[in-house]
Computed example of a mutant assay.
Amino acid sequence: MSTGKTTTPAAGVATTSKPLGMRKNGKQWHEPKKAFRPTRGLKSYEKRTQERALMAQVKAKEKEMKEEKEQEHKQRVAAIKEKRERKAEKERYEELEAKMHKKRVERLKRKEKRNKMINS
């Protein structure tokens, strides 16, 4: 009889883990409903504040990364614009050299460089 007593709790455990079988109403494809527990997903105030602090750190890091990316983009654009300006200026001086005397063109170049240094 002692063996029968030890097997009965095991049998009770087995019945809870064993599937329920066919449902009477024929809706076998639906999962059996569970108890409604409205407070199950709620978290304590400390956990919520920790999560908010973590999200703030993540957002700050994302913002920093976006700013770095934007800065790199602006630098590339500025470099391209500067290169185009130099090319246009070079072409303009070549055109001037063809029309004017070489010494006068060189004087104009020096004058423009001086003006740029003074203005910047």
Rank of each mutant, 00 (worst) to 15 (best):
H30G: 00
H73C: 10
R23G: 04
R37F: 01
R48M: 14
Q28T: 01
T16L: 11
K5W: 06
E70K: 09
A10R: 12
A60E: 11
R48K: 10
K5A: 14
N115M: 14
E94A: 12
K34V: 11
S44A: 05
R104G: 12
K43A: 10
P9L: 03
K103G: 12
L54E: 06
R40T: 03
I118T: 08
K99I: 15
R84K: 15
K24W: 11
V13P: 02
H30C: 03
K5G: 06
E94R: 06
P9R: 05
F36R: 05
R40E: 09
E64S: 13
K99H: 12
K99Q: 06
R37S: 00
N25F: 06
K24C: 02
K59C: 05
A78V: 02
K81D: 13
H30F: 09
E112N: 15
Q75Y: 08
L96E: 05
K24Y: 07
K87E: 14
E46T: 13
K90M: 08
K103W: 08
S2K: 03
K69F: 14
M22G: 00
E85L: 10
K27T: 01
K24Q: 13
S17V: 15
G41A: 10
E64T: 01
V77M: 11
T49P: 01
M117P: 00
M22K: 13
E95W: 07
L42R: 09
E68G: 10
A53K: 06
S44Q: 05
S120M: 12
E82K: 14
K61S: 00
G26R: 09
T39M: 13
K24L: 15
E89W: 04
T15S: 15
M117H: 05
E31P: 01
K90T: 08
A88E: 11
E72M: 07
K83D: 01
S120Q: 10
S17Q: 09
R84F: 02
K90I: 00
K87Y: 04
K116S: 09
A98P: 02
